[in-house]
Design a protein around this nucleic acid. Structure first.
Lengths: 186, 186
DNA sequence: TTTGAAACCTACCTATTAGTAAGTATGTTT
DNA sequence: AAACATACTTACTAATAGGTAGGTTTCAAA
């Protein structure tokens, strides 16, 4: 794997999470790397290509995290807490999550990027649904109704509140997340 | 008030809610209106100006809705239901809400637009907090914890689920909203 | 009948965008 | 030593972006 390639993906993701997909350019990346525009095209022929690669990297990262938590024998509660911590970190860095950032721009994305984004969301939601379901069976969590419905709601809470914390000045994101977790306690 | 001006605002808003702020252009609007690019600049000197005006229009619309509901003596439950219906309509039209659309692009917006967007969010959240609080006192609603916290969560649920319904194919937005309302029943 | 504002259009400008073709330096393999 | 791939740069293109100066039509008021 090329180091420059990894840096481009990292920078691209960072720009998407702060400026949005349609507001960042190859120049933004090349400038930051001290390279020329064409160098970025060498690694990623098109912006759609880069976008898709960024989503793929995120899927991979998520799957590695889940795998890691399972091999370390994390409880359902610990797993959910770790997931929430990723969002708290994003908020601290003034970033959104990829879903909350690319979701609103969905219509402007390349077909492949759309596909990959859908895949990522499915993977996250399926994992979350399974986690909530299993956790309820083990009396680790307590909530009403369908687990999938609750998973969508929980994810919505995390995604949108990241956005709101930018717009609402008086928002304590960490406290908000803790309230979310508290609501799941039996 | 100029009819063309109103059409521009309406179209601009529609583009923001479907393509996003940074993906739509003056050409998109002028093309739709059968006019030239410069005609749009005649009404709105800059894109930032147009953006700010669109947010202002939304604030006005929201305040008129609230006023209308109060004069008609809507109960807290009816008011919340009406608010949710606006979101259901947006979803049916394949649109986001202005907050969910401009929020992720916040960093790229003009200072004035940011200010107005913050104002809009504050107005909505304050209204929602008051509504939830009053509704709980009247035993119309039932929820735990701070009313403002719950208002943020409820708004997050509406905003992000609109985004998710684009990405997740198998989502029944209306049913989801009903679940949200059900969760508030005593 | 002239004046003047409202509502545009014509014609342009500069900056930036994603993207490409061709070249070059630096190694690495054969 | 020759051939080749990697990792870029130089130099360009076509398209689009937001924006502007100045002209034209239309219609109403003085």
């Amino acid at each position: 794997m090329s180091l420059t390639r990894e840096k481009i993906i990292e920078l691209g993701e960072s720009f998407i999470l702060t400026k949005g997909y349609n507001a960042f350019s190859y120049q933004d990346i090349s400038r930051e790397l001290g390279m020329k525009n064409a160098a970025i095209h060498y690694y990623f022929p098109s912006k759609a290509n880069l976008g898709t690669s960024i989503v793929r990297t995120n899927i991979q990262r998520f799957e590695e995290m889940v795998e890691n938590m399972e091999t370390r024998g994390f409880s359902e509660w610990q797993q959910l807490e770790s997931f929430v911590k990723v969002y708290i970190k994003s908020n601290r860095e003034g970033k959104l999550c990829l879903l909350g950032s690319l979701g609103p721009d969905f219509a402007t994305l390349h077909e492949n990027t759309q596909k990959e984004l859908k895949k990522m969301t499915d993977i996250i939601l399926n994992w979350l649904t399974g986690l909530l379901s299993a956790g309820r069976n083990n009396t680790v969590f307590s909530f009403h109704g369908d687990a999938h419905h609750y998973a969508v709601r929980f994810l919505s809470d995390l995604v949108a509140s990241l956005q709101l914390s930018r717009v609402v000045s008086s928002m304590d994101y960490k406290a908000y997340c803790n309230t979310l977790l508290e609501g799941l306690k039996p």
